[in-house]
Simulated scan of single mutants.
Amino acid sequence: MPAQAKFIVVEGLEGAGKSTAIAFVKQQLEQQGIKPLCTREPGGTPMAERLRELVKQVQQDEVVAPQTELLLMYAARMQLICNVIKPALAAGQWVLADRHDMSSRAYQGGGRQLDEQFINQLRNAVLGDLRPDLTLYLDIDPAIGLERARQRGALDRIEQEQLAFFQRTRQKYLQIAHTEPNIAIIDASQPLTGVQQQLALALQPLWMG
């Protein structure tokens, strides 16, 4: 097991299979003698979970401004980073996260089409020098992903957006994945065995490098 703890993030649209992928990644880590701290965004602390509820719930009496949504995401992220992620990494514990900053850049930057400079200012203020050692982006056609999500049950406020919103989100995900380091694109539309093979290959450099 490497001495230095790693920060791994699993990203993707609704219905991409993040929960299944996270379970597989956790299993792979445990086979290497690594017991990761698993968390999610938005959420992961008591306050961040309350902010998650605000973001996810359908608001009957007012429209949620896209900028408000973004600020709530980063407020929850700040709580998680300060109270969970950084302390765990400092203590030598690996962290496995269901979503992180890439989600905000894709959903609010791509889907909501918010100003990129505004998002980058928030990123720099909240993240500082924290970056994932590996991001596993599960790529899927939004129409397929949304149909999978509908089969799971009721959709939350963001999941109820139009298909075009998720198409823009996917485009932003792919743009980031193709231009920034430490991001592996996983074809989430293939059979599970294929997804797992790609995940395993992407993970190997973390303990073989």
Rank of each mutant, 00 (worst) to 15 (best):
M47T: 14
Y74P: 03
P87T: 06
L89K: 11
S104C: 08
A88V: 11
M78D: 11
Q60G: 04
P87L: 06
D101G: 12
L71K: 04
Q79S: 12
V84N: 05
Y107D: 04
M78Q: 14
G109M: 10
L96C: 06
D98R: 05
E69Q: 03
Q57F: 08
R50G: 12
V64M: 15
S104V: 08
M78F: 13
L89Q: 12
A65G: 00
A91T: 08
Q93M: 09
R105H: 12
Q59I: 01
S103E: 02
G44V: 12
L37Q: 05
R99M: 07
V95L: 09
P36M: 06
A91H: 13
P42E: 07
I119R: 01
E69H: 00
Q117R: 14
L71Y: 01
A91W: 07
V64W: 03
E41F: 11
L80E: 04
T45G: 11
K56Y: 09
E62H: 15
A97L: 08
E69A: 05
E62I: 05
V64S: 06
E53P: 00
Y74D: 00
M73Y: 15
M102N: 01
G43T: 11
M47N: 13
G92L: 10
I119Y: 02
A97N: 02
V95Y: 04
E69Y: 00
H100T: 02
S103T: 15
A48R: 08
W94G: 12
G43H: 10
P66R: 03
G109N: 08
L72E: 02
E62K: 13
K56C: 10
H100M: 13
L70Y: 00
E116R: 14
P42N: 07
Q108P: 09
V55E: 01
M47G: 12
Q113V: 09
Q93H: 14
A106F: 07
M73E: 02
L96M: 04
E69W: 00
H100S: 06
K86F: 11
R105L: 10
E41K: 09
L51F: 13
R112W: 04
G111H: 02
L51E: 07
L89P: 13
A106N: 04
A48T: 10
A91S: 15
G43A: 12
L89G: 14
Q67F: 04
M78S: 14
A106M: 07
L80T: 10
A106Y: 03
K86R: 15
S104L: 07
A97W: 03
D61F: 05
S103G: 11
K56N: 11
C82K: 15
K56Q: 14
I81L: 15
I81V: 15
L37R: 05
M73V: 03
T68F: 02
H100R: 05
M102L: 12
G92M: 10
Q79Y: 10
A91L: 13
L37P: 12
E41D: 09
G92D: 09
L70Q: 00
E49W: 06
G92N: 11
P66A: 05
L54Q: 12
I81Y: 04
C82L: 15
